[in-house]
């Protein structure tokens, strides 16, 4: 079996050597017809059609041809119409139905086309491939183009890109903007305006007759308690200042308590002295 096979192939090889240059596949009587329109166009092996064939939503494209090996009608094993989308290079094969005589036909409607081809923006390139076993040279030629006209009433076909592992688009987090201050000039102006209120207040008090004429009297009556009372008020402000700059709440609270006790104790005495002046009629 093997021997005969190899002998046969050797013979074929010899024949092939002799006939290789001579035989090649081709076709004749090629006609494309888009069915409702009925205008058939003749296609030839070597000359591609100048204008693309339009395939509407309800149309059927019919291709018929006669495959020939060296001018004689014959059935090739491979008789395909290949439609290629030029952007991605996706290609769909459509085998032709071939008879013994080499007469081959294929019908294509939009339903037969895969989504990638339907969604193509440019006309599809149509090639005819005719080839078979043996030494005959195969034929592979681009003979025409198909323009797919979609139904305008239907949503256009969408092609979802398949998931592929690869790099993804970069993401950079958008930070919230930093809090902004008004121009320093404005802040300084208003700060000065606020500070300017203090002299206005003090001067207006002076105009209304504010004075410290009772100070010697008060100090001679209760020197220690007045000094300590006023000192504790100042100290309390100092404690608040320390809390603002460096202390935390737990450092601040005991000091506040201590200062408060001093304020209460010295305050009873000092304010008692103030009351005695009022009772003496020295003040209202």
């Amino acid at each position: 079996m093997r021997l005969t096979h190899s002998v046969a192939s050797a013979l074929l090889l010899l024949c092939a050597g002799a006939a290789q240059a001579a035989t090649s596949w081709g076709f004749d009587e090629g006609v494309i017809q888009v069915v409702p329109k009925k205008a058939g166009e003749v296609i030839k092996e070597r000359t591609p059609l100048a204008k693309p064939v339009t395939l509407g939503a309800t149309d059927t494209l019919k291709l018929s041809l006669t495959a020939k090996d060296n001018g004689i009608g014959k059935r090739p094993h491979q008789a395909f119409l290949l439609l290629q989308e030029s952007n991605l290079g996706v290609e769909a094969p459509f085998p032709l139905t071939v008879k013994e005589s080499g007469k081959a036909t294929v019908q294509i409607t939009q339903k037969d086309l895969p989504v990638q081809l339907l969604a193509a923006e440019e006309p599809l390139k149509a090639s005819i491939v005719l080839a078979s076993f043996g030494s005959a040279q195969g034929y592979n030629g681009q003979v025409f183009e198909i323009k797919v006209e979609l139904d305008p009433n239907l949503p256009p076909p969408t092609r979802e890109a398949p998931v592929r592992y690869g790099k993804k688009p970069l993401i950079f987090h958008k930070f919230n903007p930093d809090p902004k201050s008004p121009p320093k000039v404005v802040s300084i102006f208003f700060a000065l305006a606020v500070i300017a209120c203090l002299p206005v207040l003090l001067i207006s008090w002076l105009f209304l007759g504010a004075n410290i004429k009772h100070l010697p009297k008060a100090l001679s009556a209760a020197p220690v308690s007045h000094a300590v009372f006023f000192g504790s008020i100042v100290a309390m402000e100092g404690v608040f200042f320390m809390y603002y700059t460096s202390w935390n709440l737990f450092q601040t609270l005991p000091v506040i308590a201590a200062v408060a006790v001093v304020t209460v104790l010295s305050g009873t005495k000092a304010l008692g002295e103030v009351q005695s002046r009022r009772l003496a009629g020295d003040r209202y």
Binding site: W205, G209, A210, N211, I212, K213, H214, L215, A218, H226, F230, I233, A270, V274, D282, R283, Y284
Partner: peptide, 9 residues
């Protein structure tokens, strides 16, 4: 505080 405590009418 000072004025309230030590101001003479």
């Amino acid at each position: 505080c000072v004025i309230w405590m030590f101001s003479a009418p």
